[in-house]
Write a protein that binds this DNA or RNA. Structure first.
Lengths: 222, 222
DNA sequence: TCAAAAGTGTTATCGTTACACCCATGA
DNA sequence: TCATGGGTGTAACGATAACACTTTTGA
């Protein structure tokens, strides 16, 4: 039973909107291999643990937050021989979309964790490819699902939501048409009755996530 | 290095349109566990082999065809403890969309392979869930990608392509509007100049796959 | 009163749907 | 000639994009 065996890990692509930019949580590696390089957080899957459970546990360890605040899904699995110089390691990557946390990176065995721009170069292992796949998945999912709300706090304005789309897609959207589209899409967002005043301008209504699981009609990238 | 280790397999969800129905290739298991039950084809990933390579090898072994004839992509990974009674087995599932093969199931260690309806009950392991995920992925991908052509032979008619959509989505589509939509979508299909006569009716133009990787505008499920 | 952001109305355009209609073949 | 499926035309409808305009706040 030793042939065809591999170590199994989960790696996390944690995305958030922070300081008006799309960012990913990276960890500065303290030990070889790739010592001193940025890497995705992750760890071994325990013997009695399902893959999703391992991803949730790692998310809690790295950020201290519950996945119900955002969104967590399996991304893809990477197992090229030699991707880890220590031996055969197959990693199941997970993608999380998270609100900007007031309490960031609480844990943690991750002493040097930071929210970094998504174009950070020189990542450890094949993490550049995993990150690129995660970002592309997030971009595509924003079109057909209401997952943009996973980047938002429990109550948010239409402008907050628009900023999510603009930063993830790296584009600009017409605020007036965007407003009409998201407020008229079935069950996407629901008004809470409250409103929020920013520094300037008219106060905006606050919304929370609606029950929709698919966006109809979709919001297509320009 | 023995903790957190698992056997790694690939399982294949091979879909085709056969006898005017969406079908999946299943294998009748000859040995325990689940002896006598239908299962997805699959096998162990070799020590020097990438995951995609293992999937391609298994596809060749099970069907004798090259994946370039259709489409092969990673689907998802399943690793619930206890999913295989023999021990910890993590399986990376792949989804293939294939044309109806004149030479089916050539291989093979799979003595009892058959193209079965996709609602086949009582599959081995957690293969019911994997199959359901594969079918749903195929349904979704037909909306936004030109992958319906992967179910077709190198030359096909618009009616052939429409049948793919109708069988995968389990619905009916207006032949006239479908024709206009697929012939006007950018780079989806290209006329070969040939035409084909069926038993009845006017001969139809033959097409081949175009270079598009995304379908614009998309073909949404009714 | 002004700047800034929220939100509504209007119009041209495009894609979809439903269906009338014509075309090209085998029997 | 008729039945059958291939393929085009067209009009009503709905979604989108561009942008003029009104609303509500802080400074």
């Amino acid at each position: 039973m030793t042939l065809n065996m591999a170590a199994v890990t989960v790696d996390l692509v944690l995305l958030t909107i922070r300081q008006a930019d799309l960012r990913v949580l990276l960890i500065r590696r303290g030990i070889p291999p790739f010592e001193g390089r940025w890497a995705l957080p992750g760890g071994f899957v325990h013997d009695d643990e399902d893959l999703d459970e391992a991803a949730i546990r790692e998310l809690r360890e790295e950020t201290g937050i519950d996945p119900s605040a955002g969104h967590l899904e399996q991304l893809a699995t990477y197992g090229t021989p030699g991707r880890d110089p220590r031996g055969r390691v197959v990693t199941v990557a997970y993608l999380a979309l998270l609100p900007d946390l007031p309490a960031p990176v609480a844990g943690s065995d991750a002493a040097h964790a930071e929210w970094r721009p998504i174009d950070e170069p020189d990542l450890a292992f094949d993490h550049h490819r995993i990150l690129a796949d995660g970002v592309e998945r997030a971009r595509a999912k924003l079109e057909y699902t209401p997952l943009a709300t996973a980047f938002c706090p429990p109550e948010f304005t239409v402008a907050d939501l628009r900023l999510v789309y603009e930063k993830v897609w790296h584009t600009t959207l017409d605020p007036r048409n965007f407003h009409r589209k998201v407020t008229s899409a079935d069950d996407f967002i629901e008004p809470t009755g409250h409103s929020a005043t920013r520094e300037r301008g008219r106060p905006a209504q606050l919304f929370r996530r609606g029950p929709a699981t698919l966006l109809h009609p979709p919001l297509l990238r320009p």
